[in-house]
Simulated scan of single mutants.
Amino acid sequence: MSERPWKIPESVLVVVHTSALEVLLIRRTGDDDLWQSVTGSKDFDDEPLAHTAAREVEEETGIQCGEGSPLAPRLLDWQRRNVYEILPRWRARYAPGVSSNTEHLFSLCVPAPLAPRLDPCEHTAWRWLPYREAAAATFSSTNAAAILLLPQFAR
């Protein structure tokens, strides 16, 4: 029997947006109220954060922004992070005793709103909203705060 692969308590949050500050939100499967930006944990401890961000964007939306892609220069590491308590409903995914996560903030500017390709196991719907409306619609306070910072980081 193999050991359970615990989630690494280090993740990325990627605010996908247009130059007009329209923000892509995706709804988590199983809960109509959980709208969010792209998020996800590192796959291994020494995975570079930019790789994690590009991988999660592609996995959750189908948008390719990894090294060598046309959108790679538009993936921006904000050099900011949040540390927050993992919600009890998701804590079982982490090793015993792990109760907090470090989230690194990124953004990705796309040329125009596009229809993402969602994995129905993770997300069931998407929408583009002006950034203030997107901040109000997300369930996560750290996600909302990041969206509100978007004008400072948008290129």
Rank of each mutant, 00 (worst) to 15 (best):
H51M: 10
S100W: 03
E133W: 01
D43E: 14
H123A: 01
P73E: 00
I147H: 04
Y131H: 02
L118R: 01
L21D: 01
S2Y: 03
P70Y: 08
P130M: 10
V12H: 02
T142Y: 08
A137C: 08
L148S: 06
V15C: 04
P5W: 09
F139C: 08
A112K: 09
D46M: 12
A54K: 14
H123K: 01
I63M: 01
E60G: 00
H51T: 14
G66H: 15
I8R: 15
A134M: 11
Y84N: 05
E47I: 05
A112F: 08
S107M: 09
R91V: 13
L24I: 03
S41Y: 00
P48I: 09
I8W: 06
Y131I: 00
L105G: 13
R155N: 01
I8P: 09
V83Y: 10
T39A: 03
K42T: 10
A145D: 12
V57P: 00
L114T: 13
N101L: 05
G68V: 14
P73S: 01
V110N: 00
G97R: 03
A92E: 14
G68Q: 12
L87K: 11
A125N: 08
L75D: 07
I147R: 01
A20R: 12
A54T: 13
L87Q: 07
P130A: 04
E59G: 02
L76E: 09
A134P: 13
Y84H: 06
N143D: 07
G66Q: 09
L148Q: 09
S2H: 03
T142F: 02
V98W: 00
V23W: 04
S140C: 06
S107N: 07
L25Y: 15
C65A: 06
Y84Q: 04
P48A: 09
R55A: 03
S69L: 12
S2I: 12
R55Y: 14
D43N: 09
L71M: 05
L75F: 04
A144V: 02
V83Q: 12
F153Q: 06
D46Q: 12
P151E: 00
E3W: 10
I63W: 08
E67R: 13
P48H: 04
P70A: 11
T102W: 10
P88Y: 01
I63V: 11
D43H: 04
I86L: 14
L75Q: 08
C121H: 13
F44K: 04
E22R: 15
F106Y: 11
S107G: 10
N101I: 08
N101M: 11
V38E: 01
G30Q: 09
V98S: 03
P70L: 07
I147P: 00
S2F: 04
V14M: 07
P9S: 06
R4C: 10
D32M: 15
N101E: 10
G30V: 06
A145I: 05
N101K: 12
P120M: 03
D43F: 09
A53P: 03
W90I: 15
